[in-house]
Each structure stands twice: as C-alpha cells, then as structure tokens.
Design a protein around this nucleic acid. Sequence first.
DNA 1: ACCTGAACACCGTTCAAGT
DNA 2: ACCTGAACACCGTTCAAGT
Lengths: 213, 213
Amino acid sequence: MTVRTALNRTAYIDAALEVIGEVGVDRLSMRNVAARLQVSPMAMYRHFPTKDDLLAASLEAFIARARVVPDAGLPWEQWVEQAARGMYGALSRELSWVPLLGSLRVGAQAIAVTEAFVGKLSAAGFTVEQSLQAYFAVIQVVVGAVCLRSSLAARRVEGAVASSTDVETAIRDGRRDISAQLQSFLRRDQIDIGLPLVIAALRAQLAQARPLA
Amino acid sequence: MTVRTALNRTAYIDAALEVIGEVGVDRLSMRNVAARLQVSPMAMYRHFPTKDDLLAASLEAFIARARVVPDAGLPWEQWVEQAARGMYGALSRELSWVPLLGSLRVGAQAIAVTEAFVGKLSAAGFTVEQSLQAYFAVIQVVVGAVCLRSSLAARRVEGAVASSTDVETAIRDGRRDISAQLQSFLRRDQIDIGLPLVIAALRAQLAQARPLA
DNA sequence: ACCTGAACACCGTTCAAGT
DNA sequence: ACCTGAACACCGTTCAAGT
C-alpha cells in the first residue's frame, strides 16, 4: 500500500541494523536485508558494491547512534570513564559486532570520537601526545574487554584448569590454587578490570607533569 | 602412494592451520581442509561436529605453538612485557584470527598461560587478586591492540578528519589540530601505546604495597 | 568404526535484460 | 538511473549408504 520511492543508502543501513539487532551481524546477508525491504538483493549493489561496505556503513551508524561522548562539563577522569563505559555498553548490547571490530574500516564517526577525547584531555593539561596515547589505550581496553566478555560468556571454564597437565615447570614453580579466585574474577565485568588501571596510570602521568596542580 | 591410516584430530588441525596460514581464517572451509587431506568433507564431522569446533581446536593449537610464556628468570616487569609482546606478535603474524578472538571458546592452553602469569606476579609480591587483574588487563590491551592494528592497516584515514562536520559543539571547544600527530601516532605499533601504561600502573600498585622494597 | 556421494538450504556476486 | 531474474561458484550440514 505504501508508495515505493527509490531506496537510498540510509534505508538499507536502517534495515541492516534491524537485521543485526534481530539475528546478529554474523547472520546478516545481502538477501535478508533486501527481503526486509521487499527488493531484489541486487538493488543494494548500486549503493554498496560489497557486503563489507554495507557492514562498514552500518557500524558507522551504530557508533553515531551510541552517542558515547559524555557531557563536556565533567572532570576528565569521569569523562574518560563515562566514555569508555559508554562504548563498552553499546558494544555489549550488540555483541555480534565484536568479531568484526578488527576487520572493518574506521570511519568519520570514529574520528569524531577521537577528536572529542583528545580535546577533553588536552584541556585537562595533558599534551596532545599523551592524550592520543590515553585514547588508544582506552580503546584497546574497551575492545579487549568486550572481546573477553563475549568469549567468556560463551562457556564455563571450570574443568579446563585441572586438565592443563602439559604446562612447563616454570609455571608450576609459581603456581597457586587460583581456580576459586579465577571463577569469581570471571564474574566481574571486564571493563572494571582494565579501565581503572589505565585511569590510574593517566592520573600519575598528570601528577608528574604538574606536581602542585 | 602413502598408506592412508585413519585420520585423527591432529591431522585435521594441522591441515586447518596450513589452510589458515595460506588463505586466512575467513576463507577456511570444511571443504578445503578436507580437500588438502584428500578426504571427503564429511569425514571431518566425526571429529569436529561443527566448523566452530574445528576452529576452536585450531586456535588452541595456535596458542600452544606460539609459546608465549617467557623465561622464568626474568624480573616481573620484563616477564610481563615479553609475554604481552609474544601474544601480540603471534596474533599479528596471523591477523586473520582477530575477527574470531571474541567468539571462540577459551581452552586449556589459554588457561595454562593464565596460570603462568598469575604465578609469576604472585611470586613478585602481587596478591592473587592483583595478579588476575593484571593478567586480564594485559590480555585486553593485547587483544585491543591487535584489533586496532588490523583495523588501521586496512585503510588510511587522512580524509576522514576533514569530513567530520556534524560533531557536537562540545567537541569543537577542546579541538586542536591533531591531524598531524594522529597520523604519526597511527604509525606507532599499537602495543607500545597501551602496554606501558598498564605496566606503569602495576609498578605503582606494587610500590604502594611495599614502600621500601 | 570410519568414510562416502548426493542433496538441501543457504551464501556473495556477475551479467544481461528490463523500465 | 534504478531495479530485476537467472545463473555461477561457492558454503555448512544432514542423511542414507557403503566397507
């Protein structure tokens, strides 16, 4: 009943994000996105020469909609923490993106986040160099944390500890009964593990530069 | 001419790692692994109920062969650094693993590395809790660094900076001309960015616990 | 027990053709 | 300009059958 106007890029991207939300990135196909728009699969190839182009564009939109840039009024430590948790939360909600994080192209939206981050830290007294280091360190921790989260969610690991018999002696020397603490550690949210360490290091960096600030 | 004995798990895993080395994880298929062993694709299903099981087993073997556990004699800082760089190097050499890092199951080999790590740091004076935090933080940075490395290797990002026009004002306030420094930053090895920060934080943690050690 | 061939229900992508 | 249908060369996996 709706009049079919020419479909544009954003219509395909919206449909792709809907498909991803329902069945995950890994089960997105050119055919099922097209089916959702009641269009021949081939129609998409005019806008996206390749499935990867569609995915990259969808990731861009996903990042833009996640709105991970915090309020400008926050002190830098809270700002960084909130930005990191925002990214972590967005990716955790759509875990199926994770396998593709390393293989998709970085786009303008990601660059915009970079600029916000560096701007905030520079204003707080970090050099641009330090700010960039902080940014990439935070991204690394966020991406790594999401990877571990989705990997550890996939299965319990209890039995495996006992079965690691072929470890070299160097390991046995320092060995403790870590099994119980490991279990409780795996229940913690991954972002709570790496992020505090990075922020602590940044705080020390800043204190060293301005001892009496 | 070779007598065909019954193929066992390891034969399939070896073949899978060969295929991965030649064409990458993403182009591994049950069919091309089978073809390499001159066997029907269906023969593999006796050992690996699913392609994912084959991949998980191959990743296990990959980790085991990477031998990332450093010499036990090293001081903890060098030990941690070398372990992290070992993992980073192994994954960088086989970048096609990266997209799967978040989705594959953790196995006994990964657990063995965990134990070595915690053993080393405990011996150096960290609590088990701190050691586990250090381990996961390092893994996060390594995985994140490899993700960024492969992502940034995929394309240059120069043009994108200029085209980010729809960034919120909060960003513009703190904005600097970061483009040039960003470029030089992207040429650095990712592991050199996050790892020093984490190690610095660990050193501070230890110093705080034993001020006069 | 281990392997096989044929078949099913999917893929991404190309191409020539339609309006 | 935009969309289509048919086809190609692949997938993972199931199943019934062979030795």
